[in-house]
Every structure is written in C-alpha cells, then in structure tokens.
C-alpha cells in the first residue's frame, strides 16, 4: 500500500460506513424504514470496528477511468473463466484423466496490495490454476496441467491476461 495516498481517518471511516451500508442494502433488497435504519446502525458499528484495516484510499479509488477498466476486467475475466472451465470439463470427461499437477511460482509486477488480492482471487476462480500462497511478489500456484515451470513462462501463461488490465486500474 502506498502510504502517500492514504486518505484521512474520517474519510476512511465514512467510506467504510458507506460501503457496508451498500452491502446491507444489497443483502436485504428492502427499502422499508426500519430495515434501512437498522442497516445504518449495524454498518456504523462495523465501520467503527474495522475502518482502519478495511480501507486505505477512501473515495479516491473511485474514478470514472477505473470503473471503465474494471468493467473491461470483469468481462475479460468472465471470458477467461468460461474458457478455462471448458478446459477442465474436457479433462474430467476424458477417461484417461490427462493431468500433470504441480505447484509453480512466478513474480508479479503489481505493487499494490489490493491489486495483488484481485489477481490472486482471479487466478483462483479460473479453474486449472489456484493460488496456494502469496509471499511479497511471489505467487505460488497449483496448476492442474503444468506445461512450463520457468517463472517467466508461467507468468506469461497464467498472469499476463489479468495483469495487463490490473496495471491500468491500479497505476
């Protein structure tokens, strides 16, 4: 996390309150007054407990450009996920079970912790690969069908399609 862009405490508090309240509204999908008031109270308590670790940037992270690239990222991600799912379906349905599992590593170019989290979760959600651990810049990936073990090759194979867009959002 870049400490220079850290938002002030009240802003971060308001931001977490706002986000928790949005989540409450999404979960209840109800706009009756008692429920909304309860939601405000509950999210206030949650925000008071967790705002220091929950967010660093506050509202600064929300920009039109970021939203656009996030949309691109989500669509790209869905496409990759469907493709990988078909691949795993093919493996599971083949009687001989053509797999070669192993744990490989690569180094990411991302510096932001949130970006790393998004990358790790995306890799996990794409079948065939998932993140076992993240240590500083190193990702340890369990791969169902290992074709290359060299970290640079692995990076090109697994992380590049995601990182290309993530670098645009977070830098």
């Amino acid at each position: 996390m870049q400490t220079k862009s850290l938002a002030s405490k009240p802003v971060r508090f308001l931001y977490s309150w706002f986000l928790f309240f949005i989540v409450w509204l999404a979960f209840t999908t109800s706009f009756q007054l008692p429920e909304v008031l309860t939601g405000l109270a509950v999210s206030l308590i949650l925000a008071a407990i967790s705002y220091e670790t929950f967010t660093g940037w506050g509202f600064k992270g929300i920009k039109l450009r970021n939203m656009w690239w996030s949309m691109v990222y989500i669509l790209n991600f869905i496409w990759l996920m469907v493709k990988a799912n078909l691949n795993v379906a093919r493996i599971v349905l083949t009687p001989s079970l053509p797999i070669n599992p192993g744990i490989v590593e690569f180094e990411t170019k991302l510096t932001n912790v949130y970006a790393k989290m998004v990358l790790a979760n995306s890799i996990t959600l794409t079948p065939g690969t998932f993140t076992v651990d993240v240590v500083d810049n190193k990702f340890y990936i369990h791969w169902l069908d290992v074709t290359v073990t060299d970290p640079h090759e692995v990076y090109k194979e697994i992380a590049e399609p995601f990182e290309r867009i993530l670098l645009k959002i977070f830098n």
């Binding site: 070669n100 599992p101 192993g102 744990i103 490989v104 590593e105 076992v132 651990d133 340890y140 290992v146 073990t149």
Partner: peptide, 8 residues
C-alpha cells in the same frame, strides 16, 4: 504430482 513439481 507426476513429475514432482513443487516450488512451494
């Protein structure tokens, strides 16, 4: 693992 690939 078939080929014993384990960086972790």
């Amino acid at each position: 693992s078939k080929e014993d690939i384990d960086a972790y």
